[in-house]
């Protein structure tokens, strides 16, 4: 094992880490505001890649336009899911909304199987993005660097959105105390819709980067990234953006490093993540950065 190889894996790991972080933030934002695990988040992630796929194959859009349209459509999808599956159950027992979230996840997956087909499809990789560049003997795919840059940009934008805008204030108020915020005249429906929009937008961005890295897309591709990102959000402390970022980042990094350095154990990586999750929940039931 050389330093160069290690650095290469590190860059890859960082890129994947950011992908997970963006997905994890989607879970955390929604959970923070409506206290609901959006099980369908991983499938919204999956849908984004199919939007790109059809944008390019069916409508022959240039890749950047296809990406932009896919992000937009995913945002609409996220808001639609909230409106159809979650809003009617807002005052129902928790168990109902959980089931609804599971059902929605299932519906999206099976919709994709029927409409898009169950087979894997190749994801278009623009040549500019998959070029490999060499910096001081370290060979890096350009996409890794772009992932990191765009993710940092998205995170900065998110920070601005949550802490500097009126909508962000409304989100934080709802997250802090739903009933009081409602009484203070915050438009609950609009704010929640907005939260889903932001979460889905982030999911779409990360899904595109994911697909650029693993260019095979299929209806169940969202399940594992979704579950790992959710784990990341819990480990970080669900409801905490910082926690989701750090949790997502470390899980992404660890996954890559484990596959790279302990290939024999790679099959067990999700088992390890699960054990870590249980241990953290046992000692800190609200996650590393969660509120008590």
């Amino acid at each position: 094992m050389t330093w160069i190889l290690f650095l290469q894996h590190l860059v890859n790991g960082a890129a994947l880490g950011f992908v997970f972080a963006l997905v994890a933030i989607g879970y955390t934002l929604v959970y923070g505001v409506v206290k609901l695990v959006n099980f369908a988040h991983g499938d919204i992630f999956m849908m984004a890649t199919f939007f790109v796929f059809y944008g390019i194959t069916l409508f022959s859009f240039p890749w950047w336009l296809a990406f932009a349209i896919a992000i937009f459509l995913t945002i609409l999808l996220g808001m639609g899911v909230e409106k159809v599956a979650y809003r009617p159950l807002r005052n129902a027992p928790r168990i109902s909304s959980l089931c609804s979230a599971i059902g929605m996840s299932f519906l999206l997956e099976n919709f994709a199987v029927v409409v898009f087909g169950g087979r894997q499809k190749p994801f278009y990789q623009p040549e500019v993005l998959i070029k490999t560049i060499t910096i001081a003997n370290v060979r890096i795919q350009l996409v890794s660097i772009v992932t990191v840059i765009v993710s940092v940009g998205a995170l900065l934008f998110l920070n601005y959105l949550v802490y500097k805008t009126k909508m962000g204030l409304a989100m934080r108020a709802l997250a802090h105390d739903f009933d009081t915020a409602k009484l203070m005249g915050i438009n609950v429906d609009k704010t929640i819709s907005f939260t889903f929009a932001v979460g889905s937008g982030l999911a779409a961005i990360s899904a595109i980067f994911w697909a650029l890295r693993y260019p095979q897309i299929w209806p169940f591709m969202g399940v594992f990234p979704g579950w790992r990102a959710f784990t990341a959000a819990i480990i970080g402390g669900i409801g905490s953006i910082k926690g989701a970022m750090i949790g997502g980042f470390s899980i992404g990094l660890l996954t890559i490093l484990m596959v790279a350095f302990m290939p024999n154990m790679a099959g067990y990586k999700d088992a390890f993540i699960f054990v870590a999750l249980v241990l953290i929940l046992l000692f800190k039931p609200t996650g590393l950065f969660g509120e008590a």
Partner: peptide, 13 residues
Amino acid sequence: MLIFSIILMIAVL
């Protein structure tokens, strides 16, 4: 499975 999940959603909602 699609029909199944639609039934599931209708049931939940």
